[in-house]
């Protein structure tokens, strides 16, 4: 089946089986390698992308369910002001260890900050606890989210 997709503001096409998860369309068909495969069962969050601005697990989202919704991936999140600030904070605070989960963490963090521009620790815990980090960079992730929130507050 041919699917017309809106990804990071570009119109792209993929000819794949309807049950193909969005993750594999991104990675293998469209060669966007930033979104990662971790568990395949919506357990780890490494494959988090935005569908019409909302975080979803691309490993369990069949391409047939995407429809005309716009997809944002880690490759495109820097086009967004909050996304860019999150990327910057991630670099300044040296958040990654291995870095494999961080695309998903950044996508989750951007969603959280859009919902709660000044999140409390509890809101960060609630918003980020479905994104696992095997290296356990959680202290830095939390600090980076606070840093973005503070920067936004100070204008």
């Amino acid at each position: 089946m041919k699917y017309a997709l809106s990804i990071n503001g570009s119109q792209l096409e993929a000819d794949v089986d309807p049950d193909t998860p969005l993750l594999w369309v991104l990675r293998d068909t469209l060669k966007l390698k930033g979104t990662k495969f971790g568990c395949g069962m919506s357990l780890c969050g490494a494959c988090t992308v935005h569908l019409d601005g909302k975080p979803i697990r691309s490993c369990v989202t069949p391409i047939s369910a995407v429809g005309s919704k716009s997809i944002t991936t880690i490759e495109g999140i820097g086009n967004d002001t909050v996304g860019q600030k999150v990327q910057q904070a991630w670099k300044i605070l040296d958040v990654p260890q291995c870095g494999y989960c961080q695309a998903g963490q950044i996508m989750a963090a951007v969603s959280l900050l859009k919902q709660f521009p000044q999140p409390t620790d509890q809101q960060i815990d609630a918003g980020m606890s479905r994104n696992l980090c095997r290296c356990a960079t959680y202290h830095r992730i939390k600090a980076a989210i606070h840093q973005v929130a503070d920067a936004v507050k100070e204008g």
Binding site: I74, E75, Q102
Partner: peptide, 13 residues
């Protein structure tokens, strides 16, 4: 900060 961080936060391979 890690030398690959810029590539990581932009999702480069």
């Amino acid at each position: 900060s890690g030398v690959d961080n810029d590539a990581l936060v932009h999702g480069r391979p």
